[in-house]
Simulated assay, not measured.
Amino acid sequence: MRPMKSPITIASIFAAALAATPALADDFPSAISVSGEATVSAAPDLAHIDAGVATDAKTAKEASDANNAAMGKVLLALKGAGIDEKDYQTSRLSLQPQYATSSKVSETQRGIVSFRASNRVTVRIRDVTKVASVIDTLVTSGANDVGNISFEVTQASKLLDGAREQALADARRKAEIYAKAAGVTLGVPLAITEGGAPVPMFKARMAPAPMAAAPVPIATGEETLSVTVSVSWAIKKEP
């Protein structure tokens, strides 16, 4: 049988182990984590317009044929206006039956009275000063539903480079306020992470325009681009 260790020996070993172990608080670096923000404004340099042609006829074939002919004129007009073929694309095609809507007819008795064919195209405009003229071209060539206009800044990330520096400076300013209040000083940055917020885009909706009218007034305005950065700073106690 193995002899039992005395309580004094066990206690002595435990006390020696505690003495040899550094304080846990000294093993973990302290840090201040804050976020910084900055914005920059820029004029949009690209526009998108969604336009379409809707055609009604007694039969599905008549509606489809008439719609194809109408959209063909729209596409030819876009090409004639100097829009590159790679900058306009069919976005939706549909052929739907239209039912009687008279209140005197029950739902089970409502039959097909006509068909509606529609064809939509999305146009990319690389010169935003031509947006109004492109809309006029669409309308005069037969598009009877024009809308969903959007503007964007294509070089947004490059334009944000200056804002990134400002956002980091904003983060440091905040961190120094917290450090002073806590009685510590800032060390080196431990981690820097940029937020992934999407770049905002301005969008507007236009009512259907079945015939040519006065030139469409377009205001492109400016886009406000923002960047957010999260930074963790090492800290040390004041001497």
Score class of each variant (00 low, 15 high):
Val128Ala: 05
Asn68Ser: 14
Ala169Phe: 07
Arg116Ile: 02
Ala42Ile: 00
Thr154Val: 04
Met1Thr: 01
Glu62Val: 00
Pro3Asn: 07
Ile177Lys: 10
Ile112His: 08
Glu165Val: 04
Val34Asp: 09
Leu75Ser: 04
Glu238Asn: 07
Val153Thr: 03
Gln96Leu: 06
Thr137Asn: 03
Ser230Gly: 12
Gly196Pro: 01
Ala38Gln: 06
Thr129Lys: 11
Lys58Phe: 07
Ala11Met: 11
Ala47Cys: 08
Ser41Pro: 02
Ser12Glu: 03
Ala214Met: 08
Ile177Phe: 11
Phe115Trp: 15
Ala47His: 04
Gly72Asp: 12
Ser232Phe: 05
Asp84Arg: 02
Ser133Ala: 13
Gln155Glu: 15
Ser91Leu: 09
Gln98Arg: 15
Pro22Tyr: 07
Ala209Glu: 14
Asp50Gln: 05
Ala16Met: 07
Ser64Thr: 03
Met71Cys: 05
Lys174Arg: 14
Lys174Asp: 11
Ala204Leu: 13
Lys237Glu: 10
Val229Ile: 07
Gly196Arg: 11
Ala219Lys: 03
Ser35Arg: 08
Ile10Met: 07
Gly72Ala: 09
Phe28Ile: 13
Ile83Phe: 08
Ala66Ser: 14
Leu24Pro: 08
Ala212Ser: 13
Ala182Lys: 12
Ile13Arg: 03
Phe202Val: 00
Phe28Asp: 06
Val134His: 01
Leu168Tyr: 10
Ala234Val: 00
Ala212Met: 13
Asp136Gly: 05
Val216His: 05
Ser64Trp: 14
Glu165Ala: 14
Ala212Gly: 15
Thr39Asp: 12
Met201Glu: 15
Arg173Val: 02
Ala47Asp: 11
Leu46Gln: 12
Arg2Phe: 07
Ala214Ser: 11
Ala117Gly: 15
Arg110Phe: 11
Leu138Pro: 01
Lys174Phe: 05
Leu75Gln: 11
Gly52Ile: 01
Ala213Tyr: 12
Ala197Arg: 10
Pro217Trp: 02
Glu62Gln: 12
Phe14Ile: 13
Ser30Gln: 15
Leu95His: 06
Asp127Gly: 05
Asp45Asn: 15
Glu222Gln: 09
Asp161Cys: 02
Gly162Val: 04
Gly187Cys: 09
Trp233Tyr: 15
Lys79Met: 14
Ser226Ala: 15
Lys158Gln: 14
Val105Leu: 13
Ala69Leu: 12
Leu225His: 05
Asp26Ile: 06
Val134Phe: 04
Gly147Asp: 08
Tyr88Glu: 07
Ala60Gly: 06
Lys104Leu: 12
Ala31Ile: 00
Ala209Leu: 15
Asn119Trp: 09
Lys61Ile: 04
Ala51Cys: 04
Asp65Trp: 03
Leu93Ile: 03
Arg205Ile: 04
Leu225Thr: 00
Glu222Ala: 08
Gly147Ser: 10
Lys104Gly: 09
Ser35Ala: 14
Ser41Gly: 07
Asn68Glu: 13
Ser41Leu: 05
Gln89Ser: 14
Val188Asp: 14
Pro22Ala: 07
Glu223Tyr: 13
Lys236Thr: 00
Gly221Asn: 04
Trp233Asn: 01
Val199Ile: 13
Glu85Asp: 13
Leu93Trp: 08
